[in-house]
């Protein structure tokens, strides 16, 4: 049985934390589910936490890259957080550089990346409502940096 990965929403951000060894069906389902949720929730950011993930093979690597591309098309940024050093070393040797995927070491840093992008987008867009931007901040993530 392949299990379902919960997708949590915090403000404008969808958070997915992969906690178990997912089979390929579950990986594909997560990809599809995230795309629908980005649109439904009008999220502008997606964080995928892979702290607990022991290996990323080409299938999961492709899923991460595809989610990043899909969410970009749906006007959201994706950050992959918590990659283990051994996973990074293995990915490079495998031949997957995940060039199009933004990464951050921790969840906190990942949220700040999204926050910065949101501010940049608001600054670049003259008629953006500042209120809408403010409302998007995840609680507690906006202090330093």
């Amino acid at each position: 049985m392949s299990e379902q990965v919960p997708i949590l929403q915090i403000g404008q951000v969808l958070l997915v934390s992969i906690q178990t060894d997912l089979d390929d069906h579950a990986v594909m389902r997560l990809q599809d589910e995230l795309a629908s949720r980005v649109v439904e929730s009008m999220a502008d950011g997606v964080v995928i936490d892979i702290t607990a993930v022991e290996i990323v093979d080409s299938f999961v690597g492709r899923m991460l890259a595809t989610i990043a591309t899909i969410s970009r098309l749906l006007d959201a940024d994706t950050v992959v957080v918590g990659m283990r050093p051994a996973v990074a070393i293995t990915l490079v040797e495998l031949g997957l550089s995940l060039g199009g995927v933004t990464t951050a070491l921790t969840l906190d840093k990942g949220l700040r990346v999204l926050e910065r992008r949101r501010l940049e987008a608001a600054a670049g867009d003259g008629d953006a409502e500042p209120g809408a931007v403010e409302a998007g901040f995840p609680p507690g993530g906006a202090i330093d940096s």
Binding site: F59, R84, T90, E93
Partner: peptide, 17 residues
């Protein structure tokens, strides 16, 4: 080692698939 384990398990995952 952890890195060797990770590489071997990743290779096994690819080949099993």
């Amino acid at each position: 080692s952890l890195v060797e384990q990770t590489k071997l398990v990743t290779a096994a995952s690819e080949l099993a698939r």
